[in-house]
Design a protein around this nucleic acid. Sequence first.
DNA 1: ATCGCCTATCGTGAATGGACGATAAAGGAA
DNA 2: TTCCTTTATCGTCCATTCACGATAGGCGAT
Lengths: 108, 108
Amino acid sequence: MAKRLTQKPCDSTPVQLHADPTAESFAKLAWAIAHPARVQIVRLLIGREACICGEIVDCLPLAQSTVSQHLKILKESGLIQGEVDGPKVCYCINHEKLDQLKALVADL
Amino acid sequence: MAKRLTQKPCDSTPVQLHADPTAESFAKLAWAIAHPARVQIVRLLIGREACICGEIVDCLPLAQSTVSQHLKILKESGLIQGEVDGPKVCYCINHEKLDQLKALVADL
DNA sequence: ATCGCCTATCGTGAATGGACGATAAAGGAA
DNA sequence: TTCCTTTATCGTCCATTCACGATAGGCGAT
């Protein structure tokens, strides 16, 4: 790359689009819901404001370990939270993060 | 899977969350912007309402072929459109698709 | 027709994602 | 304690992504 030096780059600003931290966090958040199973999980948790646990597994045509993996990804993204309740774990939506995602997309 | 038959599944609806076509298209659209480079490209195209061409390459710290790949992904998602203009190609945002994405996220 | 520029595509390699079964860890109940 | 249930993690396999250089095709200019 870097060969077209005879003309101005984008707009009037030099270049400086490299490694945009905003784009990175945006992409991460978007990636968290960039899978049908994760979209369904998020919607499920939104649908019932209250938290639920491994019934999520019963709602998806996936193995328990696979669902657990998706839940981990969603948890790491911050979109959902898990809280241990005895031997079970209740998950619920993190509305702050969800609103943040909504704002990021809306402000596109 | 399918072992917990002694208790009701999620909510009162049987199960039927399998292969939700809505979730699939949502996930596809989200995946299209689930990469920092693609977020930057989309923002760039939104910033300048008009279309631009391979200057995008100069705005990203990526090889031309890599950028072309990302553009292809975005084009296939419908979020952007490319129109040939002589030896160059001008890309622009597909506002309909973008609005669709916004609506999908807002209605979460 | 030939040259040079712009872009898409091909081929490759490294890394990651997604799915599964098996297993481990934690807690409640008998 | 000993089970049983619930969930997370491990290891593995296959598919896909992402990045690159090289190459091919299109088009305008010379």
